[in-house]
């Protein structure tokens, strides 16, 4: 634990915590939530409110008339859709910058994260699970990379070499060279940001969801969303495809390998939504 905190504490410009998300997620889980409470919570941050309104009036979400204020937007789109927009706006700032230690250019980690989140969300919808939690986990699964990128900047050549010579997943090479990996760092960061345990665990185990204990399902959605993002080209940096296939993720969600092409095509159909969410950056 101390080792994880040490890496987090070393980072000079830690992005602001997406504080609103844990609270909004808690509201989502309750029945009969008064939408004015939701509006109140979001309106507390004027910058987020303005961005959410802009997104909600963009092509993928807009109705015939633009929503002029937040309560109208919540009424029109529903709380879940608004939540998706708030999550995108909150995650954009942290995930947009380049991560040189990984060879990831500006915007690429953000594109990867949004694609993974949208893919994970549509699988959850299909299986009847809570899609907002899945979307959040998908969006933030690689947040640990923004911490490790700095540490990797001077040794990325070693990381690439380790992955190549050992035929190792990037996450395994990180662990070998740094003693920690981006998944556990991401989980630790979310704990410090007061995210609920299910999200922390899902992020921590997104490369081996079978080990996520009671949160296997959530971790499996993230694993598959991540994989589908890769299969649509949305995985960047050195040795971008150095990750392992985990058939367990499919088994946990009662899916088959032959479902993957369908899931990719469904995600393809959501690319307009992906583009809209990307413009949150």
């Amino acid at each position: 634990m101390q080792e994880l905190d040490d890496y987090i504490n070393k980072v000079k410009n830690l992005p602001p915590a997406p504080r609103m998300l844990p609270e909004l997620l808690m509201l989502l889980r309750q029945d009969n939530v008064d939408s004015s409470r939701v509006v109140q919570l979001i309106a507390f941050d004027p910058a987020i409110t303005a961005s959410v309104l802009r997104l909600c009036n963009s092509a993928a979400f807009a109705g015939a008339n633009p929503a002029s204020d937040l309560s109208e937007a919540v009424n029109r789109l529903g709380f879940r859709q608004i939540y998706t927009l708030v999550a995108a706006v909150s995650g954009a700032r942290a995930l947009t910058p380049s991560q040189r230690g990984y060879g990831i250019n500006a915007g690429e980690l953000w594109r990867h994260s949004v694609t993974a989140a949208v893919a994970a969300q549509l699988i959850a919808r299909r299986q009847g699970d809570d899609e907002s939690t899945v979307f959040t986990a998908g969006l933030l699964h690689d947040i640990g990379k923004i911490i490790l990128a700095e540490a990797l900047e001077h040794i990325y050549a070693k990381l690439v070499e380790d992955s190549q010579t050992q035929q190792a997943a990037l996450v395994e090479s990180e662990k070998r060279l740094l003693g920690v990996d981006h998944a556990e760092i991401g989980g630790r960061l979310l704990t410090r940001w007061k995210f609920p345990e299910n999200l922390v665990t899902a992020v921590c185990f997104h490369h081996h969801p079978e080990a996520a204990g009671p949160h296997q399902r959530l971790a499996s959605y993230v694993y598959l969303g991540n994989m589908i993002a890769y299969f649509m080209g949305q995985g960047y940096g050195h040795q971008a495809f150095a990750l392992r296939g985990r058939a367990e993720a499919l088994e946990i969600l009662k899916l088959k390998a032959s479902d993957i092409p369908d899931l990719m095509i469904e995600t393809f159909d959501q690319l307009q939504t992906v583009d809209t969410l990307l413009s949150a950056a």
């Binding site: 035929q167 190792a168 997943a169 994989m227 890769y230 299969f231 971008a240 495809f241 150095a242 990750l243 392992r244 296939g245 985990r246 058939a247 499919l250 390998a257 993957i260 092409p261 990719m264």
Partner: peptide
């Protein structure tokens, strides 16, 4: 056609 490290045969799109 990049191919992830997969021995399960489930993720071989590349």
């Amino acid at each position: 056609g990049a191919q992830i490290l997969d021995t399960s045969g489930c993720f071989e799109v590349g």
